[in-house]
Amino acid sequence: MSTTDVVAPATTDELVAALARATPMTRLLAGGTDLVNDIRRPGRQTDLLIDLSHMPALSYVRHDGDMLRVGAMTTFTELQADPLVHEHAFCLERAASQVGSAQIRNVATIGGNVANASPCADGATALVALSAEVTTLDGSGHRATRPLRDVLLGSGRTALTDGEAIVEFAFAALGNEHRSAFAKIGWRTAVSVARLSMALVVRFDPVAEVLSEVRVGLGAVGETAFRDAVLEGLLEGRPADEESARILAEGCADAVRRSIPGRYSLPYKERAAVGLAYDAWNALRICPPCEPAWG
């Protein structure tokens, strides 16, 4: 029954001032779809709640040279409808469209999805495959940028310090030789946490006719979303044929076995991983051919 102070910064300066007050009992409120229940749990003490939902400056998708920059407070509904995301980060669009329900996507943000650090976060899985970098801001006004994989430490654990807010994700925009996809297995067609998810990014060289720059993000098979180098190596340099799909599928099952040995859900997940991989592979085919090279 302790008191909680709420600040709702509207500008970066106000945000920095708010972050400067942060203690270990301070929470950042993005969409709130997970946090609202968390802070209301009996015994949970929150001294300061920093409501980021009045920060329009943190909600954007924009091109910056070769990079795509996504503000942390961009909602999944916005990502799902964004033309730049559609063209240059298709896997993120697909992941966004499969997060929760319309009501959840309307408020849940990509920043919150990552900061919440759920192993089955769809947005995080896509960003991992996109090799995203995270930019944070702290109470001294300092901005720091580091790879997403260094931020996600485990289930519910991040490397973010008290008073450090995610403000932006950035990753190389996918060009017209790239394709990406996202696939997910839940309990239902819609509105289900992922039991398994995969984000797949490949470059298809039209001259050599082989796959390169393969990046595979896996979700819900371990403590946090991660890229699997072994799996990626299997596809590198291969033609985009059915055999590659098979290799991806078997490699995916292997990756699951390596990630959750002995886990109760393993017998299911190692088999479902095959279907997941085929889903992701096939979904590459609906990835829009990108517009003529940007920049």
Partner: peptide, 20 residues
């Protein structure tokens, strides 16, 4: 479900302050 600024949201996982 209620509508906030034209979008459907779950009012059970939204704080009142978010609707200011």
């Amino acid at each position: 479900t209620v509508i906030v600024d034209g979008k459907a949201v779950n009012s059970c996982v939204m704080l009142a302050v978010q609707a200011l």
